[in-house]
Structure formats: C-alpha cells, structure tokens
Amino acid sequence: MAININNLSNTGQVKQKVDQQTQLKKQNAQNATNTEQAKVASKDSFSITPQAKQLGDLQKKIEDSPIVDQKKVEELKKAITSGDYKINPEKLAASIASFEFDLAESV
C-alpha cells in the first residue's frame, strides 16, 4: 500500500515552481539589459557648431534691439513741426508703385 506524503506524486507543482524560477531569471536578465542601455544612453553628448552659436548670438541681438528707432522718429517729428520736412512726390509715387507691384506678385 502506497502512502502519498505531502502530495509528492504530483509533478505539476514542481513544474510550476521551475517555470516561475525560469521566468524570474528572464525578467532579471531583461532588467539588467535595460539598465545597461540606460547607462549607454546617459553617455550621449552634443556640441553646438560655430554657425549655430553665431545664429543664437544674432537672435539675442535682435531680441534686445528696439522695434522702433526712437531717435529717427524724434528727428522726423522735429522736421515736420518746423516745416523742414520736404516730400518728393516722384519718389513717393515710385515707392507706392513698387509696394503695389511687390504685393501683387506675392498673391
């Protein structure tokens, strides 16, 4: 007569434990790979080309400069109020025509 102590004849539980251990080893290996990839990624670097630096400097100068030349505006105001500002009709007409021509081309 055979006595089954602690269900020793059942191999399903043993197989399940082995499968769990195998899966755990795979997860550990995957975690190690991810950690190694993260270390490699942290070693990346970049450099700024001289042209990019120059463009950045120019952009900063543009941002710092005023939009309106206040000195020129004041000079024109003085010239208009004193009557010294003279309008050249031919030059004004040519500028308007040029503006209209450029506007028509862009449409």
Rank of each mutant, 00 (worst) to 15 (best):
D44G: 14
K25V: 09
V18C: 01
N10S: 02
E74L: 13
K86Q: 03
D44I: 04
K43I: 13
S106G: 05
F99T: 09
A52W: 01
A29S: 15
T35M: 12
V107K: 08
N28V: 14
Q23P: 06
K26C: 11
Q54I: 09
I62K: 03
A93C: 01
V73F: 07
L58Y: 10
K77S: 09
V73P: 03
I87E: 12
G12C: 02
A94C: 01
E105G: 08
K61F: 11
N4P: 03
L55R: 03
K26A: 14
Q37P: 04
Q54W: 13
D19W: 10
L103S: 03
V14Q: 11
E90G: 06
Q70P: 02
A41T: 08
T11G: 03
A93G: 05
Q23V: 04
D64Y: 12
T81P: 03
A93E: 09
N88W: 02
L55G: 09
Y85K: 15
A41H: 04
A29Y: 07
S9G: 09
M1T: 14
T35R: 08
I5P: 10
E90P: 01
K78H: 13
F46K: 02
K91Q: 15
K39P: 00
D84K: 15
F46I: 00
Q20S: 01
A104I: 15
I67W: 06
Q37L: 14
K17P: 10
F101H: 12
E74V: 12
Q54C: 05
L58S: 02
K72S: 14
T81I: 03
K43R: 15
K26P: 07
F99V: 04
S45K: 06
K17V: 15
Q59Y: 12
I80P: 02
D64H: 11
D84H: 05
A93N: 04
S45I: 10
I48H: 07
T35L: 12
I5N: 11
K86W: 02
L76T: 09
I62S: 06
N10P: 02
A97K: 10
A104Y: 10
P89L: 00
Q21I: 09
K86F: 05
I62R: 05
L58F: 08
K53E: 15
I67S: 03
Q70T: 08
D69Q: 02
S9M: 09
I80H: 06
D57T: 14
Q54M: 14
D102E: 15
E36I: 07
V68I: 09
K91Y: 13
K60C: 07
L76G: 01
K60N: 07
